[in-house]
Amino acid sequence: MICLLFPLLSKDIASTLTDEQAVDEYLKSQSSEYFDLLYKRYSPKIFGKCVSLLKDEARAEDATQEIFMKIILNLSKFSGKSKFSTWIYSITYNYCIDVIRRKKKDLSVLVDDIANTHDKADDDVNEKFLLEMNVRRLKVVLDKIPVTDKSILLMKYQDQMSIKEIGEVMAKSESAIKMKIKRAKQKCQKTHSAIFKDD
């Protein structure tokens, strides 16, 4: 009876672990139970991000698999300096941005970033405007702006990452990230106005 109950009991204990504790336990024991816990917690979110960035469910499935392979192979490199969620989201965003740049040869991402450095950055966009936008419209608008801007907005408003954390993911200074967020918000507003100008 105890033998029958033990797996259930250990699963309950495992599910109460924090991400960082699960990582430690996995590295110590190499037991798939701990990796399973992390997989169940994060795979839907990672898949959602991949769908959002790659705009294709089949490619998002492949990307999710690749990202988890990267995670499992590099788990020992996770130092615990940042949150585990920040670490895996950084792998996800960087992977998706790389895929888009590589496969589509989407030079417009880079060109757009350079071309818009002289935008009128003083026009501050109201955060409320973005947060309260209709979800359908938000999806359309986010699909129209460059992938780096979209990623930054997702990190800030979806993953609630701090400026410092976003800076670590994008390998940029905090002031550069603040400026990028400002410009991304402006692009969202301009795109929204252009697409939904009749409303």
């Binding site: 795979s43 959602g48 769908v51 988890f68």
Partner: peptide, 29 residues
């Protein structure tokens, strides 16, 4: 306060079916 980004995340995460989750998990294994 309302956050459309969170709603969008929930919508897109919901597309991840149990079948896909199992398939990817076994590929990783």
């Amino acid at each position: 306060i309302k956050n459309s980004f969170k709603e969008l995340q929930e919508e897109e995460s919901a597309k991840f079916s149990d079948h896909s989750q199992q398939k990817i998990r076994s590929s990783i294994d």
